[in-house]
């Protein structure tokens, strides 16, 4: 058998092509341009402005007693609020997803109110209700609980604005849950509580953690709903975003930028964590 030298066809290098639909250049170009002008360039000024400070100056600003007190309050109250929201958020999601009762769809709509209500309105409404002479505050005052104009008030406002996050991440998971899972657990001899602990909790956990992190990130940056109820006393009820605002009003741009960078860094870390969390949940549950 003669084997003629047949040229072996070589695979050409694959370049990427975006696809055949029209408008790639226009849509992507506009997207990148608009994103740069509206978001990226403005945000980069923040980094540049704070880099105008020397390390010592920057440290003096971000580690000043007033700044440290504001972090303590912002992070502490945000964590506490997100924690409350995990507990009650899972509860509300459970009730909405599992039970049928009159007015259920109305309650479901109420859950979105903190998203829809402008923060200034939430702020004055919460203050009016929780102030010492307010509808709820007047019942708390005799118990020695000062709700408004205290760190507790900050926590209440942050719980309010973070409320929908946990509910809206946990509820769809509960609704999509295959009834067969619980039936299988029951057939295998698990009691109701065991089923909850060993079957439901592991499934709900990623969603609840995601909701927690989102609520936490939102609370950290929140301004409008807090400034009315907190009383804004430096070292006691001054949240970090308010401190940024104060520095700005004093035209201390570099000082404002330095604290803003701390805040931004924290929320981006949290959101990065959320991404990883969701990727992890996808791998674990095989959901797309």
């Amino acid at each position: 058998m003669t084997t003629a030298a047949v040229p072996v066809p070589r695979a050409p290098r694959a370049g990427w092509s975006p696809g055949v639909l029209p408008g790639f250049g226009l849509s992507t170009g506009f997207t990148v341009l608009y994103l740069s002008v509206v978001v990226l360039v403005p945000l980069s000024t923040l980094a540049l402005r704070s880099s105008a400070l020397s390390w010592e100056e920057a440290w003096r600003i971000v580690a000043s007693p007033r700044a440290l007190a504001s972090y303590r309050l912002s992070f502490g109250a945000s964590l506490a609020a997100a924690g409350v929201n995990v507990v009650f958020g899972v509860l509300v999601a459970w009730v909405l997803a599992r039970y049928r009762f009159p007015g259920r769809s109305l309650v479901d709509a109420v859950v979105d109110l903190p998203f829809a209500l402008p923060t200034a309105v939430s702020g004055i409404a919460l203050t009016a209700v929780y102030a010492p002479n307010g509808w709820i505050g007047r019942h708390l005052a005799p118990l020695g609980v000062k709700a408004a104009f205290s760190p507790l008030g900050v926590g209440i406002a942050l719980t309010f604005i973070g409320l929908p996050f946990v509910i809206r991440t946990v509820q769809p998971v509960l609704e999509d849950l295959d009834a067969e899972l619980e039936e299988a657990a029951a057939v295998l001899g698990a009691g109701r509580w065991q089923t909850f602990l060993h079957v439901l909790v592991p499934i709900l956990l990623p969603a609840a953690l995601t909701g927690f992190a989102l609520a936490f990130a939102r609370a950290l940056g929140e301004y409008g709903s807090v400034v009315f109820i907190s009383g804004n006393m430096p070292l006691r009820t001054e949240i970090s975003p308010l401190l940024v605002m104060t520095r700005l009003e004093q035209y201390d741009y570099a000082g404002a930028a330095a604290i803003a960078v701390v805040l931004l860094g924290a929320s981006f870390l949290i959101l990065l964590g959320v991404n990883r969390l969701q990727a992890w949940a996808r791998v674990r549950t095989g959901r797309a």
């Binding site: 940056g221 301004y223 975003p241 308010l242 940024v244 803003a260 805040l263």
Partner: peptide
């Protein structure tokens, strides 16, 4: 979404 409103205005 991850930026505090105050910082959004500040930039």
């Amino acid at each position: 979404f991850g930026v505090s409103p105050v910082i959004s205005g500040m930039v």
